[in-house]
């Protein structure tokens, strides 16, 4: 029981610190802000219900990201596809306006669009490794795939966007 209380307390008190990053990953998973809101909130509720399975002292963020991945794919994605007519909806992500620096804002939007319109398997790998900073091994555990698959997805993503980034950089410079 002490273990369970400790685990629950750690999850409960850790959620707030991780929440913005969790939501951002949910945005990458779902491709829309509304769905990201709902998924991130459900993951928080689910995390507390499953807190007994969390190992105190381990990495709450990775545990939550893995949970988000599973909830999205096992419970929600198919229904979203069925009702929404597909998931290629990142275009409706209301990307932030950087205001004071229009050039930086435009560049950031282009970068986000480039990453968010990658095929979803590549998009998840890029988000976990290049945005969240996880190692290949950690990303593989979150995605529940072999490390080699993470590497091939990253290689494919890099090949696809490398030229575009360079082009945009030169064009704006």
């Amino acid at each position: 029981m002490a273990w369970r209380r400790s685990a629950e307390s750690e999850v409960r008190h850790g959620l707030k610190a991780v929440f913005a990053r969790l939501w951002r990953y949910c945005l990458v998973l779902t491709g829309s802000r509304d769905r990201a809101d709902d998924l991130a909130q459900l993951v928080c509720v689910r995390a507390l219900e499953k807190a007994a399975h969390f190992t105190p002292g381990s990495h709450l963020d990775r545990w939550l990201f893995r949970m988000a991945q599973r909830v999205w794919f096992n419970e929600l994605r198919s229904d979203a596809v069925r009702r929404g007519g597909g998931l290629a909806s990142v275009d409706d992500v209301d990307l932030p306006d950087h205001g004071a620096d229009p050039e930086a804002s435009l560049m950031a939007r282009e970068v986000l669009r480039e990453v968010l319109t990658l095929p979803e398997a590549q998009r998840f790998a890029v988000a976990l490794v290049y945005v969240e900073g996880y190692s290949y091994k950690e990303a593989a555990e979150i995605l529940d795939i072999p490390i080699g698959t993470v590497m091939s997805r990253l290689a494919a993503a890099r090949t696809r966007i490398a030229g575009r980034f360079e082009h945009e950089r030169r064009g704006l410079g």
């Binding site: 945005l27 932030p96 950031a108 970068v111 986000l112 990453v115 988000a127 945005v131 980034f165």
Partner: peptide, 9 residues
């Protein structure tokens, strides 16, 4: 650039 753009989210 990627990290900065995503931090903006």
């Amino acid at each position: 650039g990627i990290r900065e753009a995503f931090d903006g989210l």
